[in-house]
């Protein structure tokens, strides 16, 4: 394998190939220019060392043609490189619609992960190969960063908001999971592994883990226990928006704007009900601050998203 000669780490996701290709082309460009300048410098350095017999007649103090040449070529190359890199980047920010959704909560100094079927893991993430996985992540304390080198993906995990990361593993194996944003004393211990498995192994793994309830079931329980259903159910006497089919769709707000009902919108609506009030409703919902953990929020949101 030619690749094994290059200092390229293991490629285990669909994105890693695209990014490595980009990286190698950049490297070729860098090597080309480094060698070009170094060779010219070396030639000049040897040829024009003081005392050498070299033709020094008609020297040049400047040349507009040359200046334009070596401004325009780097400019064109830079724009070209930018365009290609951005094209690859588009892929990285748009998770496929059929992604499997996994939630991640970071805290000093561990990763808490929950699968849709309810399985929980700490510092480990099991995923099937050949299927896009979308992580929705948040932090309980400081900023962390979820980094899987073999997949070439990284995303900061910021308290108070959700961030997203997606990948599709291509090769079964166990890969490093690092926290890449400095987060305090044991930052370098906030590590773990991502285990990519064949789909059937993943299914087996899911079954082996005992779980009382899936995320949606847990969310349904919370919806009831925390009193959400008291207002947001169809037969409620309080006038509150019905949540059926709300997920993903546009929500008109009372200030005239329309926002997509993504995870963050749902989260904010639970914690900060006054932030974005649905059109036609009064801002009477109490906040659920302090009554739900980040994990419970994820479960509640998972449930709300299933309401048809």
């Amino acid at each position: 394998m030619l690749l094994s000669l290059l200092p390229i780490p293991e490629q285990a996701s669909t994105q890693s190939v695209a990014i490595d290709t980009l990286f190698l082309v950049f490297t070729a460009l860098v090597v080309f220019f480094t060698v070009l300048v170094s060779v010219v410098l070396t030639i000049f350095a040897i040829k024009y060392t003081r005392g050498s017999k070299a033709d020094r007649s008609n020297p040049l103090d400047g040349s507009l043609k040359l200046e334009i040449t070596w401004s325009v070529i780097p400019l064109v190359l830079a724009i070209g490189a930018f365009s290609w890199a951005s094209y690859v980047y588009f892929d990285l920010v748009h998770p496929p619609a059929d992604s499997m959704e996994v939630t991640v909560v970071g805290r000093q100094w561990m990763w808490k992960i929950q699968h849709p079927t309810g399985q929980r893991e700490i510092n480990e993430l099991h995923v099937p190969v050949g299927r896009p996985v979308k992580l929705t992540m948040t932090s309980q304390d400081v900023i962390h960063s979820f980094f899987i080198p073999a997949f070439r993906v990284k995303q900061d995990v910021v308290p108070g908001t959700y961030s997203q990361l997606w990948f599709e593993a291509t090769k079964p194996g166990t890969y490093h999971l690092f926290c890449a944003e400095y987060c305090g004393t044991e930052h370098s211990r906030m590590i773990g592994s991502v285990v990519a498995m064949e789909p059937q192994d993943y299914e087996k793994w899911l079954q082996a883990g005992s779980t009382n309830e899936s995320m949606v079931q847990a969310g349904e329980r919370l919806f009831r226990d925390k009193g959400c259903s008291g207002c947001h159910a169809g037969n409620s006497s309080v006038r509150a928006p019905l949540l059926n089919g709300i997920s993903g769709g546009p929500v008109p707000l009372d200030d005239g704007t329309v926002v997509p009902a993504d995870d963050l919108y749902l989260r904010d609506s639970i914690l900060l009900p006054k932030k974005q009030v649905a059109a036609g409703f009064k801002p009477i919902m109490p906040t659920f601050q302090g009554q739900l953990s980040e994990e419970e929020l994820f479960q509640l949101i998972a449930y709300i998203k299933t309401l048809e």
């Binding site: 695209a18 990014i19 980009l22 990286f23 950049f26 460009l29 860098v30 220019f33 480094t34 300048v37 170094s38 410098l41 830079a78 490189a81 930018f82 890199a85 951005s86 690859v88 980047y89 990285l92 960063s145 980094f147 080198p149 070439r152 993906v153 990284k154 995303q155 890449a180 944003e181 400095y182």
Partner: peptide
Amino acid sequence: FMGLFLIGGLTGLYLAAIAIDIHVTDT
């Protein structure tokens, strides 16, 4: 300086390219 600045400056291009930066930032 010329040699080191060449390498230092050109490797800046990797960091300007978002797709690569995502992998190498904070490393």
